[in-house]
């Protein structure tokens, strides 16, 4: 099913993806969720987030919030939707159930009620922003004639030696 998911493209270096994946996983681990993360051959990240009391098991397989972080057009693409824990795609036997869309609708409703999809995207976005300052990437559109301070994040005029906010070396 392609309907039940939230996604966002964020301006940032694709080299940040492993770090962003770790930050998203750590957030949900801290919140008490079962979390599993797998690196994809494409360089992306596939994360499963589940909790026994919230997500229903289907044919013995635990459903989950699936977070995919991958590169798209030189930027970072994040998608959060319904899936099966530890599986990169919904197993055929489940998707063949004629009422599978009914289950997806219910699971997606729970994800949205808990704002889990939005939270995952928000954590990834803030991770990209945080790590961009150290990697040369940027989570926000950086004006051509300014540089950001790696210490406090303040935008300074290009060519400045010291930050106008904290005085740090640029």
């Amino acid at each position: 099913m392609g309907t039940f998911k939230s996604s966002k493209i964020i301006n940032g270096s694709p080299t940040l993806i492993p770090q962003v994946g770790r930050d998203v996983m750590n957030y949900f681990i801290t919140e008490g969720y079962d979390v599993q993360g797998d690196s994809l051959i494409s360089g992306g990240y596939d994360i499963s987030v589940s909790k026994g009391s919230i997500f229903k098991a289907v044919l013995g397989m635990k459903t989950a919030l699936k977070i995919i972080i991958r590169t798209q057009g030189g930027q970072i693409f994040i998608e959060a939707g319904v899936g099966v824990f530890g599986q990169q795609a919904i197993p055929t036997i489940i998707s063949m159930l004629f009422f599978w869309p009914v289950l997806v609708t219910q699971i997606w409703g729970i994800i949205q009620q808990s704002n889990l999809d939005e939270k995952a995207i928000e954590i990834a976005e803030s991770s990209i922003y945080k790590h961009s300052h150290g990697s040369g990437g940027s989570a926000i559109t950086q004006p051509q004639n300014s540089i950001f301070c790696t210490n406090c994040g303040k935008a300074n005029l290009a060519g400045s030696k010291y930050c106008g906010e904290c005085g740090g070396l640029l």
């Binding site: 013995g60 009422f99 009914v102 289950l103 219910q106």
Partner: peptide, 12 residues
């Protein structure tokens, strides 16, 4: 208890 559609469990 959960309100989840459970036809899958019945099939299984």
């Amino acid at each position: 208890q959960t309100g989840f559609f459970n036809l899958d469990e019945q099939i299984h």
